[in-house]
């Protein structure tokens, strides 16, 4: 097991480089992430490798990259993506009809599964003539290189990617799969440390900042949310992780619920859902198992209101006439 001194050095390195906390108790994780690098570099154990890190800046950068890699799934948690197609997209198709263009930000994009999941939903749901850009940022340059390449291992492809989308949007590339040029052309990348002041940025219609704030301390969280506020359009949307919905985002934000998902919105934004505001998820939508409502279905082009089950669901049953259950309503559990 990694020594306390080595662990403290690595934790401090990660905090300085990324502002992410790495607390005692995570020794096992650090060991698991660094051991392959250590072995690759010819060291017997992690302690010997950490000694090298103390004097080798390039190795330190690799170590930080390895420590910040998070396991990511396509369409992770499903519900936020359902909210995106069912609520945010219809509202934006109405409000952006004059420019027919959407700007999204996938913050802390890791290897890009979130950005490309959104690209697929946009390509499948945007009416003809509309365009969209997804800005993918991460503290790790290695991650951004991966996002740009759009190549994923077999094991990564298995994680939550519906088979129908796999065959539609990916091609084999050696031992990996590569996302189509059509989707890659929608993505821009930029190295960005959320914990430091942001460079000048565009205004985004939707910001996905999911499952990353949990790594920061309270003050840093609050600073990040204040900076993000400046980048969200006045009628735009911010989505946090499933375990972060309850978070008090601080001044300037209001919360709105759609389905199972809490959206954070700049104060004063006109609600995207009719019953938004005080009521909790159950009050708005009824209990679990009720069909997701599509409140703006009558006011947006029909192409944009295809139900989530048909767009995210896996496949039409071949010749059976049966309907797939929607992803959010477990049947006969």
């Amino acid at each position: 097991m990694i020594s306390t001194a080595s662990f403290d050095f690595v934790a401090d390195l990660q905090r300085r480089e990324t502002a992410m906390r790495c607390e005692p108790g995570k020794e096992y994780l650090v060991e698991a992430r660094l051991l392959p690098l250590a072995r690759e570099a010819g060291y017997e154990d992690v302690d010997a490798y950490v000694a090298r890190l103390r004097v080798d800046a390039a190795a330190r950068a690799d170590a930080v990259d390895a420590l910040t890699i998070n396991e990511t799934s396509w369409f992770r948690d499903l519900a936020p993506y359902q909210t995106f197609t069912d609520t945010m997209l219809p509202a934006l198709l109405e409000s952006r009809a004059h420019v027919r263009h959407l700007e999204l930000w996938s913050a802390a994009c890791s290897s890009g599964q979130e950005a490309y999941s959104l690209a697929m939903l946009l390509r499948e749901n945007l009416p003809p003539g509309w365009t969209a850009t997804i800005h993918a940022t991460d503290v790790s340059r290695a991650m951004l290189t991966r996002v740009k390449a759009g190549r994923y291992s077999q094991v990564e492809m298995n994680r939550g990617m519906p088979a129908t989308r796999l065959v539609r949007w990916f091609e084999r590339a050696g031992s990996e799969w590569q996302v189509s040029e059509e989707l890659r052309s929608m993505i821009t990348t930029e190295q960005l440390n959320l914990a430091a002041p942001f460079p000048p940025m565009r205004r985004f219609d939707v910001v996905f900042l999911r499952n990353v704030l949990i790594y920061f301390d309270a003050q840093t969280k609050s600073d990040i949310l204040r900076r993000v506020h400046h980048t969200v359009a006045p009628d735009g949307f911010l989505l946090l992780g499933t375990s972060e919905y309850a978070l008090d985002a601080g001044p300037g934000w209001q919360r709105e619920v759609s389905g199972k998902t809490w959206m954070h919105r700049p104060e004063g934004a006109r609600p995207a859902t009719p019953a938004a505001g005080a009521a909790g998820p159950a009050g708005v939508r009824g209990g679990a198992g009720s069909a997701p409502a599509r409140p703006l279905a009558t006011t947006v082009p029909a192409t944009a209101t295809a139900s989530f089950s048909s767009t995210l669901g896996t496949v039409a049953r071949a010749g059976t006439g049966a309907t797939l259950p929607t992803s959010l309503t477990p049947q006969g559990a």
Binding site: L35, R39, Q154
Partner: peptide, 18 residues
């Protein structure tokens, strides 16, 4: 081949010991 083998190994035998 190495990448595919690593995928099999990590999935069924754990990533701790490469």
């Amino acid at each position: 081949v190495r990448a595919l083998l690593d995928g099999v190994w990590e999935s069924f035998l754990g990533a701790e010991e490469p």
